[in-house]
Amino acid sequence: MTQLTYCLVVRCGPHQQSQALSAIEFARSLLERGHKLERVFFYQQGVLTASSLRSPAQGDLDITKQWQQLQKAHEFDLDACIAAALHNGIVNEEESQRYELSAHNLAQGFALAGLGQLASATVTCDRVMTFGANL
């Protein structure tokens, strides 16, 4: 079997369960089958996945935690688009200081990245897949 390198683009928020779930299930499956996951790029509402302040209702899956666990086991990049993150109130310590905000909330394991990181993933990855429905 040929090993392929993947980049996943997640456009939907973590509360849009079925789409957000499809992305992580797909990631799990490809890793189980011996493929490589290089980067998950969270864009648009997807950046909300990178908030450390999410408290899903009891019984709901914690998608943020699931990504963190998967990343720990397989080492890939969890990148949140920095422009979308700033729009949606997701900041790391550095951006929080830059914009003089009262707090920072980027979840552990996630990084803020520019669209250039997505562009570079299209060069290095064999496959780029998008998750998130258009309403």
Partner: peptide, 20 residues
């Protein structure tokens, strides 16, 4: 009513700037 078109164009312009 949504920013999908603009967000897509941002990706396109970035890809183009990287000569993709």
């Amino acid at each position: 009513g949504n920013t999908n078109a603009k967000d897509a164009l941002d990706v396109i312009l970035t890809l183009a700037a990287f000569e993709q």
